[in-house]
Every structure is written in structure tokens, then in C-alpha cells.
């Protein structure tokens, strides 16, 4: 008797383990909470404040998805992941979506079995040095000691950059941005390299940001975007189109201020479809009509999120640049809501 109970438990456990990856949407709804993988702490992108409330550019994506799926932007459990643990956390089902300034690359998309649903920040790798070092170009870094976050694409770009320029360097592998900041400030490395946006965010947290410069060279393409597990296309669609909804909202002039007014119906059918006053796009992905409206209502459209978290009026002070709408000369281009 006891043995059969034990065997039954074993079999049940085996079955649930096999079925766990069946439908992320159902899992999230049943749980009533979205598990979102974020950075362990990068001001502007994802960082907790003194009360433990997370905020930032990547966090806004988590909130928008939670609002679209669960109807409540606060139903998010933020799981801080390091450069080393992030993809394992996603693959193992510990998080439902990974919004952690991660670069979309071929091998991650294919071999690691991830699906990058889009790009929420077009970035590139840069270098930060002390001003008094007298360095004005990355090509002058011959023989320098460089701090680098291990487990990232930047590690490989750095090797390629120095190789192609026939220069030598001494790498110091670090595990997190906080550790990199500490080592760099202590002078254990001459330069700190990571995504340019990350450098700006790191520098903004320094006591003396004016004494550090970010070198002009951008040595790589780093399209950062949210990722989901490969194979669950419905869930992938939801996250992809939530991101697109934020981008499209900016393009069509839907802001948190005029959202309520516009959702009563406008003359622009595209806005009507986006906000659910016309047609039922939400049902096609297993959500209700107002999903996009709720997602936009959390912290506004893409432009508003950008301005509030990392834009030029914040200490991080990033210009829109490549991250402007296609109509403004940027690369953001949401496919039509139709």
C-alpha cells in the first residue's frame, strides 16, 4: 500500500514536471502573479528603492505585461538575476519573462531556446574611463586593465575589438554591475565596459559623475529586449504585442493623459483597434479587449516610460537617438494592429 502511494507520487511528480511548460499564460493566471526576471540593480533600468519597490525601464515592461494579462500592474514578482543566471532562470521556468537588458543574438535565440520578442532599447557597447587618465578614444586603451561583466556578450565583443585593433588588454571578470562599479572606482581597472546605457546608468550613481567620461566608440550592436521561452508562441505573442502596444501608442499619440478620452472612441481606426473600442484583437491572443489599454495605463507609452526612467531629464540622461520612432529618424517601428 505504502509502496504504491510512493510510486503514485513519483509518477504524479514526473507528469507535472512534464506538463509544467504547457501554457505560460494559464500558469500566470492560475498563480495570479507574473514572475519577471530583472537586473540585480541597474539604476534606470531595474532597481529597487529603499522600500523595495522596483522601478525602471525594464521594470515598466514587466508591469505592462502584468497589467495586460492579470489586470493589475502590481501583481509582479521581481526575480533579480545576474548575467550568469538569467537564461537558466528563464529556461527552468523560474521566471515567465526576462526583461533584463539582454542582447538579442543568433545563438541565444536558437541554441539557448529563447525567443526575443522585440527590442526595447537599441544599445551598443562602450567604455568608461576616468577623465584624468587623458584617454579620448578606445583605441588608446593598449595594455589597459578592463573590468567586464562575465557571462555577457560584452565579454566576446571586447575580445574581438582588441583583436581586430591588434591591441592587448588585461580582463578582470566581475559578476555584477555593483561589483564592477566598486572595482572601477577603487582603480582596480582603468576602464569599465558594458552597454553604453548601462555605463550611463552606472555613472549617474557615482558621487562624482563629472570626473568620468564615456568614450565615443561604440564597438558592437546590442539590441536589448525582453525574452521568453522558446515554444510557447501564445505567451511570446502576448509579450511581443504588449511591447508593440507601448511603441504604437507613442506613434499614434496615445498617452497616459489622453488614454481615457481616446478609449471612448476616435476617428482613427488603428487607435480604436489598439484600445479595444473596435474589433477584438485581445481575444486572438487569449486576453480581453482592454489589454493594451491597461498596459499603456500603467506608466504611459514607450516615450513616457523612456523619459521617466532613463531620458534626458533623469540623472542618466540618455538621448532617444536610435530609440526614437521611425517617424522621427529612430528604429522603433511597431507592426500594425490589425
Amino acid at each position: 500500500m505504502k509502496k504504491s502511494v510512493f510510486l503514485g507520487t513519483l509518477a504524479a511528480a514526473g507528469l507535472t514536471a512534464g506538463l509544467a511548460a504547457a501554457s505560460t499564460l494559464d500558469d500566470v493566471k492560475a498563480r495570479g502573479e507574473l514572475n519577471c526576471g530583472v537586473n540585480t540593480g541597474l539604476v534606470g533600468f531595474a532597481a529597487p528603492d529603499a522600500n523595495g519597490n522596483w522601478s525602471g525601464f525594464d521594470v515598466a515592461i514587466c508591469k505592462a505585461v502584468a497589467a495586460a494579462v492579470l489586470g493589475d500592474a502590481s501583481k509582479v514578482k521581481y526575480v533579480p538575476t545576474s548575467g550568469q543566471t538569467r537564461f537558466t532562470a528563464l529556461a527552468s521556468g523560474e521566471v515567465d519573462v526576462l526583461a533584463r537588458n539582454s542582447t538579442w543574438t543568433f545563438s541565444r535565440d536558437t541554441d539557448l531556446k529563447l525567443d526575443f520578442v522585440g527590442v526595447n532599447y537599441y544599445d551598443g557597447q562602450g567604455f568608461m574611463v576616468r577623465k584624468d587618465l587623458g584617454v579620448s578614444s578606445a583605441k588608446e586603451l593598449e595594455g589597459a586593465t578592463i573590468c567586464i561583466q562575465t557571462g555577457t556578450t560584452t565579454e566576446l565583443n571586447l575580445a574581438d575589438f582588441f583583436k581586430s585593433n591588434n591591441m592587448n588588454y588585461q580582463p578582470i571578470a566581475i559578476d555584477s554591475n555593483a561589483e564592477g562599479e566598486q572595482q572601477y572606482l577603487a582603480g582596480a581597472c582603468d576602464a569599465y565596459t558594458t552597454d553604453a546605457s548601462g555605463l550611463a546608468a552606472t555613472r549617474a550613481a557615482f558621487a562624482d559623475p563629472e570626473n568620468h567620461i564615456i568614450l565615443p566608440e561604440i564597438i558592437s550592436k546590442e539590441p536589448l529586449g525582453p525574452a521568453v521561452r522558446h515554444g510557447d508562441n501564445q505567451w511570446g505573442d502576448i509579450v511581443r504585442w504588449t511591447l508593440n502596444a507601448l511603441i504604437a501608442a507613442e506613434e499614434y499619440g496615445v498617452t497616459s493623459a489622453n488614454l481615457e478620452e481616446l478609449s471612448k472612441g476616435t476617428t482613427n481606426p488603428e487607435i480604436n483597434r489598439l484600445l479595444g473600442t473596435e474589433g477584438d484583437l485581445g481575444a486572438m491572443t487569449g486576453l480581453d479587449k482592454d489589454w493594451a489599454k491597461r498596459a499603456i495605463a500603467v506608466s504611459g507609452n514607450y516615450g513616457e516610460i523612456f523619459a521617466a526612467t532613463i531620458g534626458e531629464s533623469t540623472p542618466i540622461g540618455l538621448a532617444r537617438g536610435l530609440n526614437g520612432q521611425w517617424t522621427q529618424g529612430g528604429l522603433l517601428y511597431s507592426p500594425p494592429f490589425r
Partner: peptide
């Protein structure tokens, strides 16, 4: 073991050590 194999299959991952022969691409201090 069976659980591991099944989960790997569900994720579409295989189990081989071929990657050891690929170019590493990173530098070591």
C-alpha cells in the same frame, strides 16, 4: 534521469559535448 531527459526534450535541447571544440572567443587574465 528520465525526468531530465524529458525536460530537455521539452525544451528542445540535446545533450552533447561538441561545444568544447568551438572557438571560445573570450580572454582569460
Amino acid at each position: 534521469v528520465d525526468n531530465t531527459i524529458r525536460n530537455l526534450q521539452a525544451l528542445g535541447k540535446d545533450f552533447n559535448f561538441g561545444f568544447l571544440t568551438y572557438r571560445s572567443g573570450y580572454d582569460i587574465g
